[in-house]
Structures are given as C-alpha cells and as structure tokens.
C-alpha cells in the first residue's frame, strides 16, 4: 500500500479553543484611520486615506510537526530518505530525488554541530530585528545534511566570521522555546579561534561602527 501523509480527522477539532486563541491579539479588520488632502505644485489634487487592516495567522505544521516538537525538546530533527540515503536539514517530508518518487522520509536527530558555508553581516534588517544589529546571518551545513540552513550566528565581533568555520547549535532555555527557528542559533565552536585581523576584517569593523551607534540611539 502506498504510504501517504495522514489526513487527521477533523471531528475532534477544538473550535472553541481556536476561538479563544484568536483573541491573543484581537483582530480589527478594516479600520478607518485618517484622511489627508492637498494639491501638488502643478495644481493636481491629491487625497490620501489611511486604513488599517490586520490578521492573526495560524500556521499548521502538519507533517513538519515532529521538527517543531523537536525544537521544543532542544533537538534538531532532520530527515533521511530510506531509498537514496540523502539527509536534509531543514527537513523534507518527501524525498527530493526524482527517482525516489516522493518517498516519505524518516526523522533523524541531527548533531548540534555544523560548518558555516556563507554569511553576511547585517547592518540593516527587518523591523523586528533592528535592535539586534549588527548581527550575522549564516548558512550552516548541520551534521551530514545536504542542505544548509539560515540562522543567526552569535559572535562578539562579527567581522571575525569566516567561511568554513565550525559552529555549534545553542538552544534557548526550555521555558522560552516556541517550536520555531528562533528557538536556536549558532555560535563559534569553542575550540575554534579566528584568523588574525586583516584588511577585510578591519573594513567590516569600520562599516559596523555607525551601525552600533545607530542602534544605541534606537534603544534610547
């Protein structure tokens, strides 16, 4: 029999609880805010209206749920295909090799070590992350994974980040974990030490200086 991802029966779905959870942030929908009018230099009229619209998303993780539960337990769960042997982290719940015909993969625990493949030192980012600047976004090959995963590298002096450096995975405290990528991050392997300062590192350090200053002002 062909193995498929199961479709759970919905009859036990707790509509009442979902309604309660929806109140986490009360949704307002379309809400009138403001109107402004004027004329441009050439006499063209303009009118602007500010209208607020929001939504609370529910992400249902389905077959990826073991990965998220793993994070809550302080584990990285990747997948392995029983047919071709490929290991991937982030997980792929069906194999990516065409000849494996979307074989449903098995969950495996990944080691908490990896190699940094490439990186960037962020001097600007999304609103939610501005106060963390400058931070390092790194692509890391965890264990024997054939894919790299992006996450934050916590390193005191970002300009010392190097490709191919060994890193370890650190988890947030158990009570702070939420089953999302933000539960873990990378740190340099304690056994690793950076190569000496060079022209590029000096340059990156200099580029970071105004970013530190900007963030200090932002936090005030």
């Amino acid at each position: 029999m062909t193995k498929l991802h199961p479709t759970p029966n919905n009859k036990d779905f707790d509509w009442k609880e979902w309604k309660e959870l929806s109140k986490l942030i009360p949704e307002k929908g379309w809400v009138w805010q403001n109107v402004r009018t004027g004329s441009a230099e050439d006499g063209t009229d303009w009118v602007e209206q500010q209208i607020y619209y929001d939504m609370l998303y529910t992400f249902r993780l389905g077959a990826l749920s073991p990965y998220a539960k793993g994070l809550l337990n302080g584990q990285l769960l990747g997948t392995k295909c029983a047919k071709c042997g490929d290991i991937t982290f982030p997980p792929r719940v069906n194999c990516w090799t065409l000849d494996c015909k979307l074989e449903i993969t098995d969950w495996i625990e990944m080691p908490l070590t990896g190699i940094l493949h490439t990186y960037t030192i962020c001097g600007f980012a999304a609103k939610s992350a501005l106060k963390k600047l400058p931070f390092v976004l790194a692509y890391v090959l965890v264990g024997e994974s054939k894919t790299a995963i992006a996450n934050i590298l916590k390193i005191d002096e970002p300009w010392h980040t190097e490709t191919n450096m060994p890193v370890i995975i650190k988890f947030a405290n158990e009570e702070d974990r939420v089953g999302n990528i933000i539960d873990f991050w990378f740190e340099p392997d304690p056994k690793w030490s950076p190569s000496p300062m060079n022209a590029e590192k000096e340059r990156i350090k200099k580029l970071c200086e105004p970013v530190y200053e900007w963030v200090r002002r932002l936090k005030r």
Binding site: F59, L64, Y119, T120, F124, A125, I149, A150, N180, I181
Partner: peptide
C-alpha cells in the same frame, strides 16, 4: 516557516550569496 522569523530580508539573503 524557516526564514521570516529570523528578522532578515532579501537584501540579507542576497548578501550571504554574494559573500561566497
């Protein structure tokens, strides 16, 4: 599911690809 919550945007991803 994997990238949005990191607080990075496309410029950051592109920069990572540029670095290598």
């Amino acid at each position: 599911r994997y990238e949005a919550m990191l607080g990075a945007n496309y410029t950051n991803y592109y920069a990572g690809l540029a670095r290598i």
